[in-house]
């Protein structure tokens, strides 16, 4: 269990590296899947709400520092996304969630929340049509991210992780 905490932090770096170097190649209309949110949802659901919230905060801090984004904007959005993903942390249903499309739905929800909050806190133009803003900033990136998150469902071991 303790090694899982460590892995949740170590894995962030190679995933961010892939996200910023390789994933732009498969961008659709400037939209790239968000690997960080998939990792965050995964560990928030596995390790609990408190850990998910703290992990979101840490990921956000590292993301802002490394990509040169507005420092604090991703921290806020990922902290809240980690908190919400943590709601679905249930030891008894864990394997069911990860072997099911339920995980993809949570990724979509957290991804929308993350994208919208991130845009909002990075001084988004509020004159823009709200529905247009939600679709462009939230739903499109979330759907693309959810497609990639299917890999977790497909490759998640079909046995009890704890045994």
């Amino acid at each position: 269990m303790r090694s899982e905490y460590l892995w949740s932090i170590i894995l962030f770096f190679p995933l961010l590296l892939i996200q910023t170097t390789i994933l732009p190649i498969i961008a659709i209309n400037g939209i790239v899947p968000d690997l960080v949110i998939i990792l965050l949802v995964f560990y928030s659901m596995r390790l609990g709400q408190i850990y998910g919230t703290i992990l979101g905060f840490l990921y956000g801090f590292l993301f802002d520092m490394i990509t040169g984004s507005l420092l604090g904007s991703t921290m806020i959005s990922l902290t809240i996304a980690g908190f919400i993903a943590g709601y679905f942390s249930n030891e008894n249903k864990r394997d069911y969630y990860f072997n099911n499309y339920f995980f993809v739905l949570i990724v979509i929800m957290c991804s929308i929340i993350n994208s919208v909050l991130n845009s909002f806190f990075s001084s988004a133009d509020l004159n823009t049509n709200l529905i247009h803003f939600l679709i462009n900033q939230g739903i499109f990136p979330a759907l693309y991210t959810s497609v990639i998150s299917l890999l977790v469902v497909v490759f998640y071991p079909k046995r009890n992780f704890e045994s």
């Binding site: 905060f57 604090g72 904007s73 806020i76 902290t79 908190f83 943590g86 806190f121």
Partner: peptide, 28 residues
């Protein structure tokens, strides 16, 4: 859970407001 969330959000907002400080830019 809520107390931790609130604390982390407050810290994030403080960092957000300190964005243009030279120390933040240097660390980044």
């Amino acid at each position: 859970e809520y107390i931790i969330l609130l604390l982390l959000l407050i810290i994030s907002l403080i960092i957000l407001s300190a964005n243009q400080k030279p120390a933040a830019k240097k660390a980044s």
